[in-house]
Write a protein that binds this DNA or RNA. Structure first.
Lengths: 149, 149
DNA sequence: ACCAATGATATGCGAGTGCTTATGATAAGC
DNA sequence: GCTTATCATAAGCACTCGCATATCATTGGT
């Protein structure tokens, strides 16, 4: 921390810098598994909870519902997710992750988190858990909560 | 933290989510002061240390040296930065922030950090400093260090 | 002196993104 | 029944960004 005179850099600046590096680290992993970044995000989301509409999924992961369709098409073609008509609403399709999707997601995640764990190991032991906890809290805030609007 | 069975979400995912919100929070502040996001980044960088070449500045802030020129032009026109020929190297120009630039940067930063402080206040007191320290450490890693390449 | 490298500059290309519009089908509300 | 809203889909538009190329002037190395 090189802040001068008790100042601190903007959170956004620090986080942005770190995210950029982490994304760069993810790229080859994702490429090796033949899945896109958004594809991986979708798999993570569906692993947590199936989606009742594509629009809802897009909203949950912060993606544009019109742009995500291509990604969903690819994931479906690769057998990583399934889309089924919702019997309760014929406009909508239920989405869930497949067994293959689970396996691929797990493989990617293991590699990504191994690298992340390496970075976390650079921190003093007493900082790790508080950092992760704080990050967990802050990352769950909605955009409205963060912006105060 | 809603991780299931001792798992944790990817750092990148958590950070990315948070950054997105923080950037959204910054937008209106920057707009109100008539400065672009990159412009603000440049001001912060020059506040820390004048630059000996535009290329060096671009590298430091992770910007593309060819794309940043427009931003520098605007900042110079607005009197926020100054570019002077380097007597030691006629290809290069020395860059530094002006008094106006300092004032504007400070005004923007105050508002941005006020919002950030509001968010930090959501954390338990014991988590704040460890979080900021850890973030400071991790954000200073180079991309090569983060990617392990 | 010559060649390679570097600085500033301009711009092309492709990919990605946010937002918008439009379509046809379906559902919800009055 | 009619109107409005929503779902999935496709695609336009403008903008940003990463990377590349090119130019001219200057500098560094041999």
């Amino acid at each position: 921390m090189t802040a001068a005179e008790g100042e601190r850099p903007d959170l956004a600046a620090m986080l942005g810098q770190l995210v950029r590096g982490l994304i760069a680290a993810e790229r080859p992993v994702l490429a090796a598994h033949g899945v896109s970044m958004w594809g991986y995000v979708v798999l993570n989301a569906l692993e947590r909870c199936p989606a009742s509409t594509q629009a809802a999924l897009a909203k949950e992961i912060g993606a544009d519902k019109t742009r995500i369709i291509g990604t969903l098409d690819e994931l479906q073609e690769a057998g990583l997710i399934a889309r089924e008509p919702d019997p309760a609403d014929r406009r909508a399709r239920l989405l869930h992750i497949t067994g293959s999707g689970r396996a691929l997601r797990a493989a990617v995640r293991d590699r990504i988190q191994a690298n992340e764990n390496r970075l976390l190991a650079l921190l003093p032991a007493g900082q790790r858990q508080p950092f992760l906890r704080a990050l967990g809290t802050l990352s769950e805030l909605s955009e409205d909560e963060i912006t105060g609007r």
